[in-house]
Design a protein around this nucleic acid. Structure first.
Length: 269
DNA sequence: ATGTCGCTTTGAAAGCGA
């Protein structure tokens, strides 16, 4: 089966483009981030008419995650256990729509299925911003929640908003004093590995980026970064035969600022 | 050129988030 992750930056703007891409690339499952809509605004019919099932979680004009699958989705979970809420000073904490999981591709008795999570890690904004501590806590909580899932075939896919290594960005010195490269963020990301997961995309896509800012001609200059990552449990990792990044999806008008990361998954032994 | 985009409130333009 073919499983991808893509921060689409508004599903309403790009529904037709996303479906076209799914069909053209023969992709079975897509973990979507930044749908930027409420459940009642999601363009379900575009996908359902083409034989895809949709599970979505969205609350407002920001964030929003979904799973789109033509090989079934069962056991959908919205938010992960222990997921932190974000609290603005003097306001009720909000559980932001940043995580949705489900079992896809399961045969009889759940055999051969893969548990897929679509994750949109908080941006962090700035090192001295409350959203930065929120980001670190969110990743730490995710690592704790994900540990028990690591005994099964589980994929943690999404926009992690962390540049794991200096080689994963065009110029790391441009990020001095900024988020995405700080030691605490990278340490928080490594907690996912401590929880039993391995990042499986880099080894298949050396030197590739997944995101280019809309501003300052980032794409023509190839000022990109690798922040859309695929973490796999051992049972999932041994079934990943290849990973590729569809860089062409960043070209032309109407592109998201992120491109799809695609995993080829073989049947279990 | 802060070389952009998408959403919102709001009723053209500005604010927010990334």
């Amino acid at each position: 089966m073919r499983i991808a992750t893509w921060n689409v930056n508004s599903i309403r703007t790009r529904a037709d483009r996303v479906l076209d891409w799914l069909e053209r690339t023969d992709t079975d499952v897509l973990a979507v981030q930044e749908t930027k809509c409420r459940d009642d605004q999601f363009p379900y019919l575009v996908f359902e008419a083409a034989g895809y099932q949709v599970a979505h979680l969205g609350l407002n004009q920001w964030n929003g995650v979904a799973l789109i699958s033509r090989i079934g989705i069962t056991g959908v979970e919205r938010h992960f256990p222990g997921q932190p809420a974000f609290a603005k000073p003097g306001q009720e904490p909000i559980m932001e729509p940043r995580a949705i999981g489900g079992l896809v591709g399961a045969g009889a008795g759940g055999a051969g299925g893969v548990r897929v999570w679509s994750l949109y890690i908080p941006n962090g904004r700035a090192l001295d911003d409350p959203h930065y501590e929120y980001k670190l806590a969110w990743l730490e909580a995710l690592a704790r929640a994900a540990e028990p899932w690591s005994t099964e075939a589980t994929l943690l896919l999404g926009d992690w908003n962390v540049i794991p290594r200096d080689e994963d960005v065009w110029d790391v010195t441009a990020f001095d004093g900024k988020t995405h490269v700080s030691a605490p963020e990278r340490a928080a990301l490594s907690r996912i590995e401590d929880a039993g997961y391995a990042e499986v995309s880099r080894e298949h896509t050396p030197g590739a980026y997944t995101y280019w800012d809309y501003q300052r001609l980032a794409f023509p200059k190839n000022n990109g970064m690798r922040i859309d990552l695929a973490f796999a449990s051992p049972a999932a990792a041994e079934r990943v035969s290849n990973v590729w990044i569809d860089r062409d999806e960043r070209k032309g008008k109407g592109a998201s600022d992120h491109v799809p990361v695609v995993l080829e998954i073989t049947a279990p032994e």
